[in-house]
Computed example of a mutant assay.
Amino acid sequence: MRCTLIALGCCLLAGPVLAQSIGEKSGVNSVLGVAPATADFVKEVAISDMFEIESSKLAEQKGNAQEKSFAQQMVSDHTKTSTELKQLVGSGKVQATAPTALDSSHQNKLDKLKDASGKDFSSDYDSYQLSAHKDAVSLFERYANGGDNPELKNWAGKTLPALKHHLDMAQELGKAPSVGQSSK
């Protein structure tokens, strides 16, 4: 018990250090409520937007009526946030580099969606959207509350309500039967 408390204390004291990539990548920052480093925030947002756009383009083709409607909004909204983030980084107001490709974890999920159809596609897409939006809300809340770049912090705060709405919508995916869709 004492060792656990000492380890926890060390983690809390190391909060600023944990705000680097390892903390964000491992989920430690989220558990501790620590704001991500600016570079990590930009990376996570860029990858999240790319995944939302690409997976939702698949849902526009393969999903049921409810998923297609949701996917159209995801493509539109995440294209907008992706453009805004690129403008902030490109303006020099944010010192970070946005990735231009998905990481392996998100690419694997996208590949799984490409190969899935029917109920399997819906189950995976719905689950991925719920998880992605929970993560995004946490990420944006933590940066809006404690980020170190004022421009990016302001943008995170302004973007957060839309992400919370996306999360609410994602929680409804698969709950209501879609009109005109047969269950396969």
Rank of each mutant, 00 (worst) to 15 (best):
G174M: 04
E52L: 06
D115I: 09
F41T: 13
T38L: 02
G147C: 07
A39V: 10
F140W: 10
H165L: 09
L113K: 14
S55F: 11
D111N: 09
S91G: 14
K62I: 02
A162I: 07
G146I: 06
G23W: 03
S105A: 07
S117L: 03
A176M: 03
D49K: 14
S48C: 03
N154L: 14
G33R: 11
V31N: 12
L130P: 01
K158L: 05
Q171S: 11
G9W: 12
K184Q: 14
T81F: 10
T100I: 06
N29I: 07
A116H: 09
N149P: 11
L110F: 12
I22F: 15
D111S: 02
K158I: 12
Q20R: 08
H133I: 04
V17M: 03
Y125G: 04
A65Y: 02
L163R: 05
D148K: 14
M1D: 01
A37E: 05
T79I: 05
L139V: 07
S104E: 13
D148R: 13
T79S: 04
V89Y: 14
K68I: 01
A132E: 12
Q20I: 04
T81D: 03
N154T: 15
K86D: 04
F41Y: 12
T97P: 12
K93D: 06
T38P: 09
N154W: 11
G33K: 04
S76L: 01
K43R: 07
G157F: 03
A59C: 03
A71F: 01
S182Y: 10
Y125L: 13
G92T: 12
T79N: 02
D148P: 07
L139Q: 05
L110M: 04
A176N: 07
G23C: 02
C3H: 13
A71E: 05
T79W: 03
M1P: 06
S21I: 00
Q20D: 11
K68R: 13
K57N: 14
D168N: 15
L102N: 04
K68V: 00
E60T: 08
D124M: 07
A144M: 14
L18I: 11
S82L: 08
D120I: 10
A132F: 04
S30K: 15
V45P: 12
K114P: 00
V31I: 15
L113F: 08
P99A: 03
P36H: 10
E54C: 06
V94I: 03
